[in-house]
């Protein structure tokens, strides 16, 4: 069997989640090809060729893939699809955007956000914000799948795959990139961090998120947020953790001033250790926290920073 895995990257760095998606491909079993579609993305190609378990790296380095527009990337994957039984991408915003387009062009449905592989055609995925776990069999001839990275352990990176450059440019000419407004941060990616500290509505305003900085510095943590904190404009959208935001499963997750709505829990309840800081002893977050502390965050955070 042959499996095509889409490499998730920003033209300079291969995202750590790709290593977990390759692990999902290994669980299916078969010859794994990694596709790097981008522009001026040689450093990604170098990293991709070292991913263990990958036999070949296909490179489509072309201006039409610079922003990985769904209209263009889906046509590229469609051209390659004939050689593969499984086509897999990480369930991050790029994969979520173009993969269903690939599926429909191939006249198959997509199996979204899998967290485990039972066999080459049976997969496990959370539904209803993770309040139920479905085991689903794909009846389609080709399987188009997105992978929730937190379900798999990353493969190593001391491999040496063959690199093949493709001479393809697919431009649908119906969409174009206008601009990006990306959040600059020195901190690790939410999806890759071993420690995540998130603030909720209880933080009261964006300025108060600085109270999390010192702790994040000491722990090498990424900073996240609840939907309420993002909606209120305290922090940018890409910090939202939850059912409809980012899914994280770090060794340590610290929820500060977050009540623990099911949609928030859906994005973090697979963390190894959960700490909750909340002044309301009845807050549902305490039902999933390994260690809870009933306290005012404005007292607790400075003290915690001092004692780490």
């Amino acid at each position: 069997m042959s499996i095509l895995v889409f490499a998730e990257h920003d033209n300079s760095t291969l995202k750590a989640e790709t290593l977990k998606t390759v692990a999902a491909a290994q669980a299916i079993g078969g010859d794994i090809t990694l596709l790097v579609a981008g522009y001026n993305c040689q450093s990604v190609v170098d990293a991709a060729s070292k991913v263990n378990g990958v036999s070949k790296v296909l490179v489509a380095d072309n201006a039409s893939y610079e922003h990985q527009l769904a209209e263009n990337v889906s046509l590229l994957v469609l051209e390659l699809a004939g050689d593969y039984e499984h086509i897999i991408a990480t369930a991050l915003t790029t994969g979520k955007n173009f993969m269903p387009r690939v599926a429909a062009l191939l006249d198959v449905t997509q199996i979204s956000d899998i967290i485990a592989v039972e066999s080459a055609d049976i997969f496990v995925r959370p539904i209803y914000a993770g309040n139920a776990i479905a085991t689903v069999q794909s009846l389609d001839s080709k399987k188009v799948i997105t992978v929730r990275a937190t379900g798999f352990d990353a493969v190593a990176t001391d491999g040496n795959a063959e690199v093949v450059t493709l001479d393809i440019a697919t431009d649908a000419n119906i969409s174009s990139h206008v601009s990006d407004e990306l959040t600059e941060s020195e901190r690790p990616d939410l999806g890759a961090a071993g420690v995540v500290i998130s603030g909720g509505r209880g933080m009261q305003n964006g300025d108060n998120f600085k109270l999390l900085d010192g702790i994040a510095d000491k722990l090498g943590a990424a900073i996240g947020a609840s939907r309420a904190a993002v909606d209120a404009g305290f922090v940018p959208n890409d910090m939202q953790v939850g059912q409809t935001g980012k899914i994280v499963a770090p060794d340590l997750y610290i929820a500060v001033g977050i009540s623990g709505a099911i949609q928030h829990l859906a994005g973090m309840k697979d963390s190894k250790i959960i700490v909750a800081i909340n002044k309301d002893p009845e807050a549902p977050i305490f039902q999933v926290a390994d260690y809870g502390i009933v306290a005012d965050l404005f007292d607790a955070l400075p003290e915690l920073e001092g004692k780490l």
């Binding site: 790029t94 955007n97 407004e181 890409d238």
Partner: peptide, 14 residues
């Protein structure tokens, strides 16, 4: 304007 992993991206569509 789209909410993407890194922040926001704006695309123009016919």
């Amino acid at each position: 304007t789209r909410e993407v992993d890194g922040g926001l991206q704006t695309v123009a569509l016919n």
